[in-house]
């Protein structure tokens, strides 16, 4: 008698596999004939270098590749060679050391050409200035974009405005926003967490359709110059956190800071971080 799970159609088994990492998903091919080639067409790829590093800590820079890194690079090579889906719903890629770059471009290009709806890309190695390959026309279906530890060039930031017609969720974490003008008319959920700009730049945010806005600022180095947020008339939920930087002792009080206009209609406001109330003081006096 056949087990009931194997009787499910491919897309339902793919849905189950979408909750596995790419490595776990590939491993299911051994389980039975039914599962043999399922992974090759799965529309969700979740590649994570940390799975190959038993310590789960980002590795320090080493010139020689550790055996774990070699296994990871070999895995990605094989995966890209044998995976055959023409389009992807979700593509997640997390690399955690210097050598991850070797396959990052290759992997991202493959992911991007499959026009994913969800793209999550995280580089957890310190001091990264990894720049994304151009998204081009393949961002036409992109609904959610999460980037962590990435260098955001002028081309990329401008592409957000004009090249992502259905983008609703944008999450930027620990990114260097080299061109400090985030603009999008389609965004509904925006999170900017611990991002920095170049020296002397003020970050401006123009996202009029946003309903949920999450902002965390911890000023590191001398980079923080301020933020200007344009009106967000549909905003329902906002959470703002400005923190004191423990090492540098810097507080985010240099430069212009304007969130007031954007918070006018907000129904759910969450404030945290030691420096937030001081900076938002004018806001309170107007209530």
């Amino acid at each position: 008698m056949k087990d009931r799970l194997s009787l499910l159609p491919d897309d339902l088994l793919h849905n189950i596999m979408s909750f596995l990492t790419a490595r776990q998903a590939v491993q299911t091919c051994v389980v039975s004939r039914r599962w043999r080639n399922l992974w090759r067409s799965m529309p969700c790829l979740n590649v994570d270098q940390r799975e190959f590093n038993p310590t789960a800590e980002p590795e320090n820079w080493t010139f020689d590749k550790t055996p774990e890194t070699v296994r990871f690079l070999n895995f990605v090579d094989n995966l890209l060679m044998l995976h055959r889906a023409e389009s992807l719903d979700t593509f997640r890629f997390h690399f955690s050391n210097w050598h991850g770059r070797e396959v990052a471009d290759q992997c991202l290009c493959r992911g991007i050409e499959c026009c994913p709806r969800v793209l999550e890309f995280c580089y957890s190695y310190d001091n990264s200035n990894y720049e994304l390959p151009p998204l081009g026309s393949s961002s036409c279906r992109l609904r959610r974009l999460h980037l962590a530890g990435i260098y955001l060039s002028k081309n990329f930031v401008l592409h957000l405005r004009s090249g992502c017609p259905v983008l609703e969720d944008l999450e930027l974490e620990g990114c260097l926003i080299a061109y400090p003008k985030i603009m999008s008319c389609t965004l509904k959920n925006l999170a900017i967490i611990n991002c920095t700009t170049h020296w002397g730049h003020v970050l401006t945010v123009t996202t009029p359709a946003v309903i949920s806005f999450h902002l965390v600022i911890i000023p590191t180095g001398a980079y923080w110059k301020g933020i200007l947020v344009d009106e967000m008339p549909s905003l329902i939920k906002a959470s703002i956190s400005l923190k004191y930087h423990v090492c540098t002792g810097r507080v985010p009080n240099a430069g212009p800071f304007n969130l007031l206009r954007s918070l006018v209609n907000v129904r759910n406001l969450e404030l945290s971080g030691s420096e937030t109330l001081g900076r938002l003081n004018p806001f309170y006096s107007t209530i």
Partner: peptide, 11 residues
Amino acid sequence: AHMLEYGWAYE
């Protein structure tokens, strides 16, 4: 046999 063929995912 498949375990061997897919060693790259098991290593």
